[in-house]
C-alpha cells in the first residue's frame, strides 16, 4: 500500500457531510436509480479513504470527488455484468424514496455519459470551461465541444425550459 493520507473518522465524516449531496447528484445522473447511485457514492468515498489524496482546500476536495464519482460510474456502466438495466428492475432499499425526476433532469440523464459531469459542473456549479478542464483533466477544447454539444441536445429537447440566463 502506498504512503497515503490516512484520515481520521472525524475528517472523513466532515468531508462526507460537506459533499455527499453533490456526489450523490452526480452519481444519480449516471446510474439513474437510487440503489446504484448509493453504491457509487460509497465507492467514491472508499476511493477517497484508500488513496488518501491531500487537498488544497474544499473546492479541490469537491473537484476530486466529482471527478472520481464520474469515473466510478463510467466504470460500473462499462462492466458487462451490470445486472440492472432500468429503474423498474431495482430492488427497493429502505429509505430509497424515488426522487422527483422532472423533464429537465430526464433530459440530463438521457445525455451521453461523457457530457453529464461537464453539464453538472457548468450549469449547476457554475464552473467555467477552463476550470472544468482542470477538474476533469481534459483539454479545454474537449470541454468546449462537450458543452456545445450538450447544450444543443438540451435546447432541442427542452426548448424554452432551457433558457440560459
Amino acid at each position: 500500500m502506498s504512503d497515503s493520507l490516512l484520515r481520521t473518522d472525524k475528517e472523513i465524516a466532515e468531508i462526507y457531510s460537506r459533499h455527499v449531496k453533490t456526489v450523490y447528484r452526480v452519481c444519480f445522473a449516471y446510474m439513474k436509480d437510487p440503489a446504484d447511485a448509493e453504491d457509487a457514492v460509497q465507492e467514491t468515498f472508499f476511493k477517497l479513504i484508500r488513496s488518501g489524496p491531500a487537498f488544497d482546500g474544499e473546492e479541490h476536495e469537491k473537484a476530486w470527488l466529482i471527478r472520481t464519482a464520474s469515473n466510478v460510474c463510467k466504470n460500473v456502466l462499462r462492466h458487462w455484468w451490470r445486472r440492472r438495466e432500468s429503474i423498474e428492475d431495482c430492488p427497493t432499499l429502505p429509505g430509497s424514496d424515488e426522487p422527483e425526476i422532472d423533464d429537465v433532469f430526464q433530459a440530463v440523464m438521457a445525455l451521453p455519459d461523457k457530457y453529464k459531469a461537464v453539464v453538472y459542473l457548468h450549469y449547476y456549479e457554475g464552473f467555467s470551461g477552463a476550470e472544468i478542464a482542470g477538474i476533469l483533466k481534459k483539454p479545454q477544447s474537449t470541454i468546449r465541444n462537450h458543452l456545445h454539444e450538450a447544450r444543443a441536445i438540451l435546447k432541442e429537447r427542452l426548448g424554452d425550459d432551457f433558457d440560459e440566463k
Binding site: I101, V104, V108, Y123, E131, F162, D163, K165
Partner: peptide, 14 residues
C-alpha cells in the same frame, strides 16, 4: 461561466 436555473432547480430535487 453560466449557471442554469432550470438545471439547478431540477438537480436540487435529487
Amino acid at each position: 461561466s453560466m449557471k442554469n436555473e432550470a438545471i439547478i432547480a431540477s438537480w436540487n430535487k435529487i
